[in-house]
């Protein structure tokens, strides 16, 4: 159908330009991942071809010792992830709810503290963690899960944002007043009114925390603990193929988590139930 007189105005680009640019960018970003995947399934010493022999090696009892450290690292990381999420639920969430409902002026202070780890380089924190952990390990022995306290700090911005956006989307004060006017006590209000309304924010927050923990390398490396990432780095020398496979799998796992968070947020937004988005907007990566 011929359209006459329509002119593009404002910021939106033309469809053709946008498609071309986005496709080129997409390919550029997929290329290193493709190279990594191709490498993971290449026969040893060759630069092309496809083989599953590296995956079989994983189950080979003779070579099992090579992967011990990685398996242990994965276990440690999973435990650390669990403990970190618990720490967020115990330390961060109650403080945020209390500030939102009763001490609204404290909200800014909490936001400031939670976003502070962005401007303190992780390596600086890591240097400071060394003496702190020397004291702690004297009490507990050198166990990995205690790293959760340190990693929890660098996860703070990621744990904070989704809950904050969720809180901004539901009018918590009114909800609280409604609940209380209907006769609910403080505890009942939080448990059966506030928390259910924050479910999505808390879930996103927990998932993002898990993804931060699984990708964390700096602190584990400085404190010489064995986690998923340090295990991968070590395995790189012994078996780069399997290390690449695990790297890809971890990426895919985190990608799926984030697509799910994004889709859940979008569906909600489309239904106009509330306007919060779980995006990690303006947060830099933890590295």
């Amino acid at each position: 159908m011929s359209r006459r007189g329509s002119a593009r105005v404002g910021a939106a680009p033309g469809r053709a330009t946008a498609t071309v640019v986005l496709v080129i960018a997409g390919l550029a970003f997929l290329y290193p991942l493709y190279a990594l995947a191709a490498f993971a399934f290449q026969p040893v010493g060759q630069h092309s071809g496809f083989t599953l022999q590296h995956l079989k090696a994983l189950t080979d009892p003779v070579r099992a010792y090579q992967y011990d450290q990685l398996w242990e690292g994965i276990q440690n990381s999973l435990v650390i992830a669990l403990v970190t999420v618990l720490l967020m639920l115990v330390f961060l969430l109650p403080a945020m709810i209390l500030a939102e409902l009763r001490y609204r002026r404290v909200r800014q202070a909490i936001e400031f503290v939670c976003l502070l780890p962005i401007s303190i380089p992780t390596v600086v924190l890591a240097v400071g963690f060394i003496p702190v952990y020397q004291v702690m390990w004297q009490a507990t022995g050198s166990v990995a899960w205690i790293l959760a306290f340190a990693i929890g700090i660098i996860s703070l911005p990621y744990a904070f944002r989704p809950i904050q956006s969720n809180m901004a989307g539901v009018d918590m004060v009114t909800l609280q007043e409604a609940a209380r006017s209907l006769g609910a006590g403080w505890f009942q209000t939080v448990w059966s009114v506030i928390l259910p309304n924050l479910r999505r924010g808390i879930l996103s927050s927990a998932l993002l925390t898990v993804s931060v923990v699984l990708g964390e390398y700096t602190i584990a490396s400085f404190l010489q603990q064995n986690t998923f990432q340090t295990g991968l780095a070590l395995l790189e020398h012994a078996d780069p193929y399997v290390a690449s496979t695990f790297a890809l799998a971890a990426l895919l796992f985190v990608f799926i988590i984030l697509v799910l968070i994004g889709a859940a947020g979008t569906i909600r937004r489309n239904r106009k139930v509330s306007t919060w988005s779980p995006s990690t907007a303006t947060l830099p990566p933890v590295r």
């Binding site: 011929s2 359209r3 006459r4 007189g5 329509s6 002119a7 105005v9």
Partner: peptide, 27 residues
Amino acid sequence: RALSGLEGIDSGSIRIGGVDVVDVPVN
């Protein structure tokens, strides 16, 4: 919006001061 030129039209004519402006861009 068709009159302003922000939106194109499929057919017909738009005249301002007697002059057809369909092919005149909005600005």
